[in-house]
C-alpha cells in the first residue's frame, strides 16, 4: 500500500508540473479578455469573440463592396481609385441607355442586355426544371424503394464536385469527338456540334447545371418530406384519400416552406451562374450563353481595354438583384420556421 501511495503521489506531481505551461498559457491568453470584461462588463464579451470574423468579413467583403461601388462612379483604365476619373452616374446611364429594353440590339451596351436576357432565359428554364426534377426525385427517393440509400448518394454525388470539374467532364462528353457523338455515330446517327448551335449550347448549359446542383435541392426537399409525420398519411389513408389528393392537399402544402427556400436559393444561384458555363461553352457560340457574371468578368478583366468602371456598375446592378432575392430567401426561411 505505501508503495502505491508513493506512485500516486509521484504521478500527481508530474501531472502538476506538466500542467504549469498549460496554466501559464491560459493565464496569458485570458489576460486581454479579463481586461475587456473589467472595462466593458460581460456585455462586451460577445463582441470580442465576434471581432476576428467581423474583421475578416470587413476586409474581404465590406471594403471591396465599397471599393466596387466607388469604381462604378469612375472611368478610365487605372486600377488605383485615387487616380481614376470621377464620372458620376455615366456608367449606369451607359448601361441603361436603351431604345427598347426588350430589344438588346437597341441598347448602347447591347452585350449587357444580351447577358441579362440570356441569364433570365437560363434562370427561368433552369430553376423551373431544377425544382421540378428535385421534387420528383425527392418524392421517389422518399418511398421505400430498393437501394434507396445508394440512389440518394448517386444523386447527391455531383454536388461534391467542383463546378470546373463538372464542366470538364461534360465537355469531354459533348465535344465534337466526345463520347456522346461517338455513341451517336456508332448507332448510325450524325454527329451534332453541340457548342456551335446556340440552342444546344443553352440546353447543355442548363442540363449540366441541373445535373450538378439537383442533389443539393433534392436533399433539402427530402428532409422536408421526412419531416412530415407518417401519421398524417395514415390518417389520410383511413379517410380514403386518393394518392393525388394526398400529394396536392397534404404533401405539397406541408412541403411548401421547403419548396420556397429551394426556389429562392436556386434563383440566387441561377443569377450568379458563371464558372460551369464559362468552362463548358466559354459563353458561346458568340454570346449565346454569356451570362451577367461573365459579362462583368469579361468587361472588367478579360477584354483588351479593362473597363473596371462599367464592370463595377454592372455588378452593383447584379448586387441589387441578389439583395432582393436574398430578402425573399430570408422571408421564405422565416415562413418555414413559422410552420
Amino acid at each position: 500500500m505505501p508503495e502505491k501511495n508513493a506512485n500516486t503521489s509521484l504521478s500527481d506531481r508530474l501531472t502538476a508540473i506538466a500542467a504549469i505551461p498549460v496554466v501559464l498559457f491560459f493565464r496569458l491568453f485570458e489576460a486581454p479578455f479579463r481586461f475587456v470584461q473589467k472595462i466593458g462588463g460581460l456585455k462586451a464579451m460577445p463582441y470580442i469573440f465576434l471581432l476576428p470574423n467581423l474583421a475578416f468579413f470587413g476586409v474581404f467583403v465590406v471594403v471591396p463592396l465599397f471599393i466596387n461601388f466607388s469604381f462604378s462612379f469612375t472611368g478610365g483604365t487605372n486600377i488605383f481609385l485615387s487616380e481614376r476619373v470621377y464620372t458620376g452616374t455615366e456608367q449606369y446611364e451607359f448601361l441603361f441607355d436603351c431604345g427598347n429594353y426588350l430589344d438588346p440590339q437597341s441598347c448602347r451596351e447591347d452585350r449587357f442586355w444580351k447577358a441579362i436576357f440570356n441569364t433570365m432565359t437560363f434562370v427561368v428554364l433552369q430553376v423551373s426544371s431544377l425544382v421540378a426534377l428535385s421534387l420528383v426525385t425527392a418524392l421517389i427517393l422518399n418511398r421505400k424503394i430498393r437501394a434507396r440509400g445508394f440512389f440518394r448518394a448517386v444523386f447527391f454525388f455531383p454536388v461534391l464536385l467542383s463546378p470546373v470539374v463538372v464542366a470538364l467532364i461534360w465537355k469531354w462528353i459533348l465535344l465534337r469527338d466526345g463520347i456522346l457523338n461517338a455513341f451517336l455515330v456508332s448507332i448510325g446517327l450524325e454527329r451534332i456540334l453541340f457548342f456551335i448551335s446556340p440552342e444546344w449550347a443553352m440546353f447543355w448549359a442548363i442540363f449540366v447545371s441541373i445535373w450538378s446542383q439537383m442533389g443539393f435541392y433534392m436533399l433539402i426537399l427530402l428532409a422536408g418530406l421526412q419531416a412530415i409525420p407518417p401519421d398524417l398519411y395514415e390518417a389520410a389513408e383511413m379517410d380514403g384519400t386518393s394518392p393525388e389528393r394526398v400529394f396536392w392537399r397534404i404533401t405539397l402544402p406541408l412541403l411548401w416552406p421547403n419548396l420556397l427556400v429551394v426556389v429562392v436559393l436556386a434563383l440566387i444561384k441561377g443569377v450568379q451562374v458563371f464558372d460551369e458555363v464559362f468552362v463548358l461553352t466559354g459563353g458561346g457560340p458568340g454570346t449565346a450563353t454569356q451570362f451577367i457574371v461573365q459579362y462583368i468578368y469579361t468587361t472588367g478583366f478579360a477584354s483588351s481595354v479593362q473597363n473596371f468602371g462599367l464592370a463595377s456598375a454592372a455588378s452593383v446592378v447584379l448586387g441589387l438583384v441578389l439583395f432582393v432575392l436574398t430578402l425573399a430567401q430570408l422571408a421564405a426561411v422565416r415562413r418555414k420556421n413559422d410552420v
Binding site: 409525420p229 401519421d231 395514415e234 410552420v339
Partner: peptide, 30 residues
C-alpha cells in the same frame, strides 16, 4: 379506407395547415 373504421392516433395526426373545420371535413370531401 374501405373497412369503414375511424382511428384516433396517439399524435392526433391533425393536418397542421388546415383549420379544425377542414380537418374534420377532409375525410368527408373524399
Amino acid at each position: 379506407s374501405d373497412r369503414g373504421l375511424a382511428m384516433v392516433f396517439q399524435s392526433y395526426a391533425l393536418y397542421p395547415h388546415m383549420s379544425v373545420y377542414k380537418n374534420m371535413a377532409f375525410g368527408l370531401e373524399n
